Simulated assay, not measured.
Amino acid sequence: MASSPRSAPMAQLGVLLANRGTLAGARVRDALAGSGLTMRSAFTLTQLADGPVNQQALIDLLGVDPSALVAVLNELEGLGLVSRQRDPADRRRHIVALTPDGTRALHAVDSVLNKTDDDLFATLSPTERAHLERLLAKVTDPGACG
């Protein structure tokens, strides 16, 4: 019985994506280090960009363990970037919002991450970058791209 041909070493898409993801993750972490933020804290700020969110909804949006979110929120609150207030409709819940400093930090993070993207994807045309973004969205959420 003939054996099936093997792909060339490191040619599997998952391996290539994991390898490039490691490189991209390191560059993003390095870029964020200058702002004193981690990827998790920066991503939390981005989830608050459209306005206050209750803490449980934020847990669901981020897909993190509640204790992990509490640690991130404690850090961000200590930096003066977010505030937590009791929900007037349900005193057991907290509403999380960006502070003015948090909004400024988010703009700075966006700028740093845009520069990092420009560096990472400098060899791609704008059309290729848009196509890659669509493909990655499709891989991570097959229902998102019909």
Rank of each mutant, 00 (worst) to 15 (best):
I59Y: 00
A130N: 08
S35F: 04
P66Q: 13
R92P: 01
P66F: 14
I59P: 01
R129G: 01
P5M: 02
A24D: 13
S3A: 10
G34P: 01
V53S: 14
A130Y: 12
L124P: 06
S7D: 10
K115W: 02
A57Y: 01
R6T: 00
L48P: 04
A71E: 07
P100Q: 12
D101P: 08
D141V: 15
D60H: 04
D141L: 08
A137W: 08
S67W: 13
V109A: 12
S4V: 09
S35D: 11
E75H: 12
M10F: 15
P5N: 06
L32M: 05
D110N: 13
M39T: 14
H131S: 15
R84K: 15
K138G: 06
L76C: 08
V15T: 13
S41K: 05
D65R: 08
L45Y: 02
L79A: 15
I59F: 04
A97S: 15
G14T: 06
H131D: 14
A31Q: 05
D119P: 06
P142A: 10
G80D: 01
E75I: 09
E128V: 02
L58M: 07
G14V: 13
R40M: 10
V96W: 07
A26Y: 12
L81D: 01
R134G: 02
R104F: 09
G143R: 14
G78Q: 10
V139K: 11
R40T: 11
A8P: 07
L98A: 07
G14P: 07
I95S: 13
A49S: 15
A105C: 00
I59Q: 09
R86D: 03
V82R: 01
A108D: 04
L120W: 11
A108P: 03
E77W: 02
T140E: 00
Q55G: 07
A137G: 12
S4N: 03
G21Y: 09
Q47M: 12
V64H: 03
A26H: 11
A49T: 07
L135T: 04
P52D: 08
R40S: 13
L132F: 06
R104P: 03
L79R: 14
D90N: 11
T38D: 01
A2K: 02
